[in-house]
């Protein structure tokens, strides 16, 4: 009996919803009799519901309403703001940049995470290696962005290079490159269509550097959970290491990888800090979040900012749904 003081002979007592619920579960027949008193648990839920209503539901609805209104929210403009997002060059650019982040950032961080988890799992100095890869995760995003600004720092040819990358490049005779500004392909000078710009890749590298550790740690934990019997059985059957990885490790790891990937996709969609600190979204590196911030605070256009926020929200919803569905199925399997 968990709460003997509140429960007299198994009879639920008003004022303890947990006990009520437990009692209902144990004696479904009695539930009908006590339904009358069930409003009590709503009372307990009330503070949470109020908070969610004020800080989550109301802002979402308000943003939705604002996205159909003009800059200072005095008149309705219908779908104009949404039309603008999909027709304005700069807005399109930020959407495409987000798509690039979504694919490249997620793919690289997960891929490197799997690689590092598998490789570090096989060496004696595993914990040291993992610590090094995980450290970036422990640095604040802004600090990491500042560090990488120094790494990418640029001075014109003939001047002292204080940036690591350009110092190395000029050291071997290559010209320095303004990694955060340059849109053309580094050293080749070709301009590729919108998201495929050098500076976008330079920013994504920073994101990958930060999040690979996270992916590695989670996947490594999944890796440790693979029963050794299965691997040993495969080995006895004469499977090569690659076959074991491809046919046994990966399928067992798949749910873990999916969790990591969805987390990273959400990260990529709402990416703001790295871009803001390193380029402020200038030179064509805007993503939706930075673009929304500018529309809101620099241009004071609440309508367009609202439309961008709604688009961002709608893009994240399916991923959240997938996540929730998987959590449910996992809970059922348990």
């Amino acid at each position: 009996m968990c709460c003997p003081r509140n429960t007299i002979a198994g009879e639920p007592v008003m004022g303890n919803p947990l006990a009520n619920l437990l009692a209902r579960r144990r004696n479904p027949g009695r539930a009908r009799n006590s339904r009358r008193r069930n409003y009590v648990h709503w009372l307990w839920l009330l503070p949470t519901l109020v908070f969610i209503a004020i800080f989550l539901v109301y802002p979402v609805i308000d943003t939705f309403v604002l996205s159909f209104m003009n800059a200072d929210s005095t008149a309705s403009v219908g779908l104009d703001n949404y039309a603008w997002v999909f027709t304005n060059g700069a807005a399109q650019g930020s959407l495409l940049n987000n798509v690039l982040w979504l694919t490249l950032f997620t793919f690289l961080a997960v891929g490197l995470g799997v690689l590092m988890a598998v490789l570090t799992g096989r060496v004696r100095y595993e914990s040291v290696a993992k610590a090094f890869i995980f450290i970036p995760m422990a640095i604040s995003f802004v600090a990491a962005a500042v560090i990488w600004r120094f790494v990418y720092a640029y001075s014109p040819e003939g001047f002292t290079q204080i940036g690591l990358v350009n110092a190395a490049a000029t050291g071997v005779g290559l010209p320095p490159i303004a990694w955060l500004v340059e849109q053309k392909l580094a050293y080749l000078g070709q301009l590729l269509p919108t998201p495929l710009h050098t500076n976008n890749f330079a920013l994504i590298v920073v994101g990958v550097w930060m999040w690979t550790g996270f992916a590695m740690v989670i996947i490594s934990a999944g890796l440790k959970g693979i029963p050794t019997e299965v691997v040993e059985a495969a080995r006895v059957d004469g499977a090569s290491e690659w076959q074991i990885f491809r046919r046994i490790t990966l399928p067992i790891l798949a749910p873990t990888i999916a969790v990591v990937a969805t987390t990273l996709i959400v990260q990529a969609l709402k990416k703001f800090d790295i871009v803001w600190v390193m380029t402020t979204g200038n030179y064509g590196t805007d993503v939706v979040a930075t673009f929304m911030y500018k529309e809101m605070f620099s241009y004071q256009n609440f309508g367009r900012a609202g439309a961008l926020a709604v688009i961002l929200l709608l893009a994240i919803v399916p991923i959240m749904l997938i996540n929730i569905r998987r959590f449910r199925s996992e809970a059922q399997n348990r």
Binding site: Y154, S155, P156, G158, A178, V181
Partner: peptide, 11 residues
């Protein structure tokens, strides 16, 4: 300008 427009933007 040494470094041209790129240097103007990056400095």
């Amino acid at each position: 300008v040494p470094g041209g427009a790129t240097a103007i933007l990056a400095t």
